[in-house]
Amino acid sequence: MDFLDSTGLGVLVGGLKRVRAHEGSLRLVCNQERILKIFRITGLTKVFPIHTSVEEAVAATD
């Protein structure tokens, strides 16, 4: 994605809550520094596992 605002963050947090309610997990893949900066500023890097590739995210689930 090229853009992320508070609405997008809200959707992600809401999705995470739903997934966790069913004992699941949600991992994000992001390699754009400007998007990562938003996650850092909001403190969501502590909430979401963020990876630089799909392969890395899948490997981390093992």
Rank of each mutant, 00 (worst) to 15 (best):
Val47Cys: 05
Ala21Lys: 10
Arg34Glu: 15
Met1Arg: 15
Asp5Leu: 03
Glu23His: 08
Gly15Lys: 10
Ala60Glu: 07
Lys17Cys: 12
Glu55Asn: 11
Glu55Met: 05
Cys30Tyr: 05
Pro49Ile: 00
Thr42His: 14
Leu44Cys: 05
Phe3Leu: 14
Gln32Trp: 03
Ser6Asp: 11
Phe39Ile: 08
Arg20Cys: 09
Glu23Cys: 02
Ala21Phe: 10
Lys17Asn: 14
Lys46Gln: 11
Ala57Gln: 04
Leu16Trp: 00
Leu44Gly: 02
Thr45Val: 12
Met1His: 14
Asp62Asn: 13
Leu16Asn: 02
Thr7His: 12
Asp2Ser: 12
Pro49Glu: 09
Gly8Lys: 06
Arg34Ala: 15
Pro49Ser: 13
Leu36Pro: 00
Thr61Leu: 15
Arg34Phe: 13
Ala57Pro: 07
Asp5Tyr: 02
Ala21Arg: 08
Leu44Tyr: 06
Arg20Thr: 02
Ala59Trp: 14
Val29Gln: 06
Ala59Asn: 15
Pro49Val: 00
Leu26Tyr: 06
Glu33Pro: 09
Ile35Asn: 08
Asp62Val: 12
Gly43Ala: 03
Ser6Glu: 09
Val29Gly: 07
Glu55Thr: 00
Glu23Thr: 02
Ala57Leu: 01
Phe39Pro: 09
Gln32Arg: 09
Glu23Ser: 10
Gly15Thr: 06
Ile41Gly: 11
Leu12Ser: 05
Ile35Ala: 06
Gln32Ala: 06
Leu16Arg: 04
Glu55Val: 07
Lys17Leu: 11
Leu12Pro: 05
Thr42Gln: 11
Phe48His: 05
Thr45Ser: 14
Val47Ser: 01
Val19Trp: 03
Glu55Ala: 09
Ser6Asn: 14
Thr61Val: 09
Glu56His: 10
Gly8Asn: 02
Leu36Gly: 00
Ile41Glu: 13
Asn31Thr: 07
Ile50Glu: 01
Val29Phe: 03
Gly43Phe: 04
Leu4Asn: 05
Thr42Glu: 13
Arg27Ile: 05
Thr52Ala: 11
Gly10Met: 01
Glu33Asp: 14
Arg40Cys: 10
Ala21Val: 02
Leu44Thr: 03
Gly43Lys: 09
Ser25Asn: 06
Thr52Leu: 14
Lys37Phe: 07
Ser53Arg: 15
Thr45Phe: 12
Ile50Tyr: 05
Ile50Arg: 02
Asp5Asn: 10
Asn31Cys: 00
Val29Asp: 05
Ile41Val: 13
Glu56Asn: 11
His51Leu: 06
Arg18Gln: 13
Gly8Thr: 02
Ala57Trp: 03
Val13Lys: 08
Ala57Asp: 07
Ile50Ala: 04
Arg40Pro: 07
Ser25Ile: 05
Lys37Arg: 15
Pro49Met: 08
Gln32Met: 06
Arg20Lys: 08
Leu12Phe: 08
Gly15Asn: 12
Lys37Asp: 15
Lys37Cys: 04
Val54Lys: 11
Asn31Glu: 13
Leu4Ile: 01
Leu44Ile: 07
Val13Trp: 10
Gly14Arg: 07
Asp5Val: 02
Thr7Ser: 13
Leu4Glu: 04
Val13Glu: 09
Thr7Lys: 13
Phe48Glu: 00
Arg18Tyr: 01
Glu33Arg: 09
Val47Glu: 05
Lys46Val: 02
Arg34Thr: 10
Met1Ser: 15
Ile50Met: 04
Gly10Tyr: 04
Arg27Thr: 09
Val13Met: 12
Leu4Pro: 04
Val58Trp: 07
Val54Trp: 11
Leu26Asp: 06
Ser53Leu: 11
Lys37Tyr: 14
Ala57Asn: 00
Gln32Phe: 08
Arg40Tyr: 10
Val11Met: 09
